[in-house]
Each structure stands twice: as C-alpha cells, then as structure tokens.
Simulated scan of single mutants.
Amino acid sequence: MPTQWTVRAIMRAMLPVLLVLTVVEIGSGLVLGSFESTLLRYPTLLALVPVTIGTAGNLGSILAARLSTAFHLGTLSFGREDDVLGGNAVATVALAVTIFPLVGVGAWTLTWLVGGTELGLPTVVLVSLMSGIALAFIAVFVTLVATYAAYRFELDPDDVVIPVVTNACDVLGVIVLFVVVRIVV
C-alpha cells in the first residue's frame, strides 16, 4: 500500500480502472437500449431499472466499504473461516431480501400513480426480489474479487473497489433484471 499520496500515484492507480469502467458503462447503455421495446411495453420496468441497479450498487458499496475498513484494520484474511468476510456477505444478501420487495412496491406504486400499471403488484415484487437476490450475490462476488485484487496489486481498496462494484452492478443489473423479466413475465 502506498505510504504517500501524490497526484501521479493516484492517476497511476485510478486512470486504468476508470478507462475500463467507462467502456463497461457504454456496454450497459447498449444492453439497456436493446430492451427498449420491453420497457415501452411495461413502464413499471422502466421505473424499476434505475432503482434496481442503484440499490444493488449501494449494497455492493456498503460491503466494499466494510471490507476496506477491515482490510485497513488488518482483520480481513480472505479465508473461508473469516467471520468478517462471511458475516458481511450474509448481511448484504439479507439486506437485499429485505429491501428489494420494497423497491418493487415502490416502482409499482409510482407507476400506478401516473396511470401505467400493466403488470400486477405481485409480479413486479417477484421480479424485483429475484433480481435483487441475484444482484446481491453478484455484488458480493465482485466486491470480494475486487478487494482481493486491490490487495494483490497493492492498491488502496477505498479507491478501486466501490467504482468497480457500482459499475458491475449497473451492467449486470440491467442484464439480470431482463433475464428475470423473461422468466417471470
């Protein structure tokens, strides 16, 4: 881990990450564009997209911050028996199980208020919950891999992990949401 922070060190660490993540975000936009007809057919899904990917990114960011803190404190070992790692991963999935049904209810209610409820409440909640659980597992996996990679490359996980996790959740969130829609709707 660098002992001193300079503009050069920050640029060297972050520029490659940000360039790769920019390309990833362009991919997310292309994937989202390919589902335009589905979004126009079901406006509730249009309301669900940003909240789903944002909430998944937030869950991953919370986990990333907690793991980064544990890393800096020296309490993170990346082993199977690591209670910090396991407990935080389980908490992330539990938060997803708790919050994503509320996300579904919120998206449905918002769409209902503006007169566009073409999908029933149970369907929207199921889509949101299934997407959220899948994204929670993805966020946990990406966070663990990114934190470990930061450790191995001697980068500060505070700088690297949260951008990686939020961008991965953006791209994979769109894909997961529409896979679930194809299964459920």
Rank of each mutant, 00 (worst) to 15 (best):
G60V: 03
P50V: 06
L30A: 09
F78T: 11
V84M: 10
A134I: 15
T143E: 11
A9S: 15
F178D: 01
R80Q: 13
I162N: 11
P50I: 07
L144W: 13
P43Y: 01
L48K: 04
V90T: 09
N88G: 03
I10S: 10
V51I: 15
V31N: 07
A65V: 12
L63E: 09
A65T: 15
F178Q: 01
G74E: 10
A70R: 14
G29E: 10
T147R: 03
S61I: 03
P122F: 08
P43L: 00
A146C: 09
I10M: 11
A96C: 07
I26P: 06
V84K: 10
L39S: 09
L76P: 03
G86E: 09
M11I: 15
D83K: 12
V181H: 02
T143S: 10
T6R: 13
L177P: 03
T143D: 11
V145E: 09
P2A: 09
G79F: 02
L121M: 11
R41V: 08
L30F: 08
D156W: 10
V93K: 04
A91V: 13
Y42F: 15
D158Y: 10
S61D: 02
A139I: 08
S77G: 09
G29D: 12
V17W: 12
V125W: 11
L119Y: 02
A70I: 11
I162A: 14
L102F: 14
A134N: 07
P163W: 01
G132E: 08
G79D: 11
T22P: 06
G57A: 06
F141L: 14
L45D: 02
A150F: 03
I26L: 12
G79V: 10
V17G: 09
D158G: 12
I10A: 12
I53H: 00
W112A: 14
N167Q: 06
N88P: 03
Y151H: 08
R80P: 14
G115R: 04
V103H: 01
A136D: 07
I53K: 01
V140R: 03
G106T: 15
V90C: 00
T111D: 14
T52Q: 10
M1T: 14
P50G: 07
V90S: 01
V174E: 04
V49E: 07
C169S: 15
L39N: 05
P157Q: 09
V161M: 12
G27E: 05
A168V: 15
L76H: 05
R182H: 14
T98N: 10
S68H: 04
V185W: 07
T143R: 10
N58I: 04
